[in-house]
Amino acid sequence: MRPFTYARATSIDGIHAVQSATGARILAGGTTLYDLMKLGIETPGHLVDVTSIAGLDEIRSHQDELIFGALVTMSDAAAHPAVLQRAPVLAESLSKAASPQLRNMATLAGNLLQRTRCAYFRNGPEYPCNKRMPGSGCAALDGLDRGHALFGGSRSCIAVYPGDWAVALAALDATVDVHGSRGMRTLEVANLHRLPGDTPHLETVLEPDEMILNIRVPVGRLGQASTYHKIRDRESYAFALVSAAVALELDDGMVRQARIALGGVATRPWRVPAAEAALAGQRLDRAAALEAGRVAFADARPGQHNGFKVALGTAAVADALMIAAERSPSR
């Protein structure tokens, strides 16, 4: 691993001070960054540890909003009573991710910035990867693409965004408060990650000196009737083959509004508005749910080894809708 300097910030101003002086990368839980440093993929010369900053590890439950501090751990958020009750999709997206150990370490903001599991990206320089080495090509395009994107890919990159939490957040129209040297701004989580396009090494719209401070999730009528349905290669401790985050507002069995986001199949958290629209005003039964699943995957562009995810994803969306509907206070 390349040597780096390590600084510990105790305030947000402290982070910016270190960053402006050194260009330091922010270190929080470290479960992604340190892992990729061990692989030689991330090679920062300076790190600034932000985990000693007070006040960023709280969850606040307001009437219409849940606010998560950036440094809340995944396990704390997953176990929080308000989260479990008001937005199970969020709790499930966290508790079905990684392992208890990693969830105790990883922070909510850091988790949003998790990087792809594409094996060509994670392995050594013998494999072309535009994300790891811009301009080197993409080995996955004609390679083993079982784990690669059906949505949002480009000729430069089809690496899947691997996270779960961001997918659930995208479904609920969550936003993030971001602080940088130019002050504070608010972004929609759904717009936080970029499509790979010709620049797959640029993964988010964050500036290098920006840090996520809060994650805000509107929870009003939507939230309670929600679920995160994750299909994996093993029962636990695995990334999603396909996942569906759904939230419903039902009125006497009729869908007033539906939110559906897909994980494991796209280059970023993937909302499917067409499928949401297809459900609006419909009576939610198995047939309608399956139809929504089909609409969700209508624009999928599978590769050589991931075509099964169209059928699997269709079923996962349908199952998720039925599970969420069961949780509706007014079925």
Binding site: G30, T31, T51, S99, P100, Q101, N104, M105
Partner: peptide
Amino acid sequence: DHGQCGACTVHVDGRRVASCLTLAAK
């Protein structure tokens, strides 16, 4: 050595963590 197996599990401040992905500096 990548937080994928749990053999390195210890408790830090009363919580289980993967010590292989915990920088000692922290």
